[in-house]
Write a protein that binds this DNA or RNA. Structure first.
Lengths: 234, 234
DNA sequence: GGAATAGTGTCTCTAAGACAATATGGA
DNA sequence: TCCATATTGTCTTAGAGACACTATTCC
């Protein structure tokens, strides 16, 4: 009965609006990023449904109005269902829209950025973003480019890159990740250490060290749930 | 005939999806901001339609899939129709969504920030944002708060506030606007002058000066279409 | 001349960057 | 021992901030 009501509502919506306001398609797409082989990469999944069935693209799907409380929830559900991932860093990138981007018609896609250390992936195609993968479905190239730009820009003044690190990491390893993201040759480790520690965004894991053929390095973990902001830049 | 087809399509969408994927309502809302009486203010319009008919809220409306090429176009149309404004600074703030925010049902609203000098307004209720207006419809309070936060944060390192200035303005007037937005007491004018001029984001209007009971001040205009970014902060 | 603000110059001090010095493990 | 990298410390320098000084108008 409730379904019938919704159907009638949907029907009358079109009529009362004089057919001008039929609703757009509403989806979410996730730019799931990680670092692999010293480069930023994006997870691509083989599409099971039309359109573009069989092609590799961003994980995404319809908003399920009976299941998702909001767009964030839809994004987390897609991450769960398509990538079997929970508890990852997730932020809304923006909404991509228009009459042309989806062959099914006028569509709105809430695009999200998710960041994850490489060790949490299994059996996924991780595509390099430089150069961009060819022939992605929909406007996924545009979305990925915007995501990369956002991550690069935000990394200049925040601890966003810590979400690409495994649970425990050394300061030098974190510095290396900043260098890869920001495409900077050599960030001085001494200065980097002071800035990141002054911010108190990471904390030492007592007694745990990274060993090797050198002086052992203190291991750190992220000390805050969200990103922290620098006064100026890295 | 085309209308009938769309109607059938809409109908069959619900059926084939087993009633799980009926589409959300899709709207746009504009946070139209300006400076008046040394304070940031937001334009509110009286709603003509249900829900919340008669209440004052952000200008907004349905996405018209037969009329708007994308969400940006929908936002510009709303600005034209409700505020009779063209050619204003417009940026996407984010998308606000959920099952609860609109009594009509699950909805997605693409929220936009528009900035405008006060002299371009006519007959509009400009509401102070500190404190926030009471009892706004939908989640407009949340949207406005997010807009204010975005404008404040972005003003720290960009020339965004120039879009709140009239065509011609002095450097001291621009400094005053930064002070209001950033809630800083006294930004040193000499340092501000050097930074803003080094960026080449504004240019002098030859021969035009602001006069008064003091040495005349050079008038400037914005030299670039978009915002420019500072290396560090204001 | 006095008041008011525009615009320029100068001094100080902080902090970023470069890099030297020292520490500590493994081979 | 040497090698490699971690960690700390020091020096230099650019730039931000404070503020003094000069300029130019109206009264």
């Amino acid at each position: 009965m409730q379904n019938l009501n919704i159907l009638i509502e949907q029907f009358s919506y079109g009529i009362t609006a004089g057919m001008k306001n039929e609703k757009p398609i509403a989806t979410v797409d996730i730019v799931l990023m990680t670092l692999q082989d010293d480069a930023l990469r994006v997870a691509l999944y083989e599409r099971e449904n039309e359109p573009f069935s069989g092609a590799f693209g961003l994980p995404g799907g319809y908003v399920h109005v009976n299941e998702d409380n909001d767009l964030d929830a839809a994004a987390r559900r897609v991450l769960r269902e398509k990538a079997m991932l929970k508890g990852v860093y997730l932020e809304q990138l923006g909404t991509f829209s228009g009459v042309k981007r989806d062959p099914r018609g006028w569509s709105l896609s809430g695009a999200y950025i998710a960041l994850l250390p490489e060790d949490r992936f299994e059996d996924v195609r991780l595509a390099s973003v430089d150069p961009m993968p060819r022939k992605l479905p929909f406007d996924h190239s545009t979305i990925i480019k915007a995501a990369i730009a956002r991550v690069r820009q935000k990394s200049v003044y925040s601890t966003l890159p810590t979400f690409l690190m495994p649970n425990e990491f050394t300061i030098a390893e974190l510095r290396d990740v900043y260098q890869i993201i920001l495409q900077i040759e050599k960030i001085d480790l001494a200065g980097f250490r002071k800035k990141i520690l002054d911010l108190r965004a990471i904390e030492p894991v007592d007694g745990k060290m990274r060993t090797g053929t050198h002086r052992p390095a203190q291991l750190y973990r992220r000390a805050v749930k969200d990103i922290a902001l620098f006064d100026r830049t890295i």
